[in-house]
């Protein structure tokens, strides 16, 4: 009994620690006062101001496009890598690849950002591509980062009995490519979609890596916000935070739903 109470206090404390600042931000987004952390009555004026702020809107739109492109890139690379890791148990360098593919998950972003910047600069010097730094380099950088996440998700989802299903397909007359397209790929879709959404949100809120590899034409939303912090914040930023929170929350929720639907189906399969 006592233990249960301690547990629920702990839970409340933990949740509060995580979410009170976020809720504060959302609350102040509806404040009428000019100062971002001063309550001045309920108002939607900052949402209206946000809608009129072209610089922010433009940055947000760019961020979304970069995120979508990066997530797609990540899904293709990470999906292939995750499939290879899950399927071909014994290829040379498998352990090395398995370790390296996850490295971006633990590597400090500063290191990742710097190394990607060096790569892009060297690449341009050698081949002339990518020309300068900008949205494209941010997209490529985020794609590489996201690929690590997608690979991990896909590998975990493919650990089941897909191999025998492919064998069954081939036994019934499907060549390896047809078997992959008609059986394995449809089974990978939930993991790929979840991975895409993870990579999308990752790209959307990345500041560090983007700051390293971006250029004049590639100012993403987090970069605009961060520079706005130095110039002085307006409650518009709170409103923007609330909108992003809603968007990111929806995407993560969708990813979790997809993964859970897949798991339930897997259980129904009954081993």
């Amino acid at each position: 009994m006592k233990r249960g109470r301690v547990g629920s206090w702990g839970l409340a404390l933990g949740l509060g620690f995580l979410w009170v600042p976020v809720l504060l931000l959302v609350g102040f987004a509806f404040s009428a006062d000019r100062i971002p952390f001063q309550w001045g009555g309920v108002s939607l004026r900052w949402f209206a101001a946000l809608a009129a702020n072209e610089r922010l809107i433009e940055a947000a739109w760019l961020s979304i496009r970069i995120a979508a492109g990066a997530a797609t890139l990540a899904m293709l690379i990470g999906g292939a890598a995750g499939f290879a890791l899950a399927r071909w148990g014994g290829f040379g360098g498998r352990v090395l690849l398995g370790g390296l593919i996850g490295a971006p998950l633990v590597l400090p972003e500063v290191v990742t950002g710097l190394s990607l910047l060096l790569t892009f600069v060297a690449l341009e010097a050698l081949t002339g591509w990518p020309e300068g730094r900008g949205a494209l380099t941010v997209l490529l950088a985020h794609g590489t980062l996201g690929a690590a996440y997608v690979a991990v998700v896909v590998q975990a989802r493919l650990a089941g009995g897909e191999r025998v299903l492919e064998e069954a397909a081939m036994d019934l007359g499907a060549g390896p490519f047809t078997a992959f397209c008609t059986v394995t790929l449809p089974l990978m879709v939930p993991a790929l979609a979840a991975g895409w959404l993870l990579a999308f949100t990752l790209s959307l809120d990345d500041l560090v890596v983007a700051s390293f590899v971006s250029g004049p034409e590639g100012t993403t939303l987090p970069m605009v916000l961060f520079s706005a912090l130095r110039l002085g914040l307006t409650p518009e930023v709170n409103a923007l935070g609330a909108v992003i929170l809603l968007l990111a929350g929806a995407l993560v929720g969708l990813a979790m739903l997809l993964l859970r639907a897949r798991r339930v189906e897997g259980q129904g399969e009954g081993g």
């Binding site: 009995g161 025998v164 299903l165 064998e167 069954a168 397909a169 081939m170 036994d171 019934l172 007359g173 499907a174 060549g175 059986v183 449809p186 089974l187 189906e265 897997g266 129904g268 399969e269 081993g271």
Partner: peptide, 20 residues
């Protein structure tokens, strides 16, 4: 001959039904 070219078919122990 690869499996898809053999007029031989197999029932797998796990049945290997396509869940989708």
């Amino acid at each position: 001959d690869p499996p898809w070219a053999r007029p031989v078919h197999m029932m797998f122990q796990s049945y290997a039904l396509f869940p989708h």
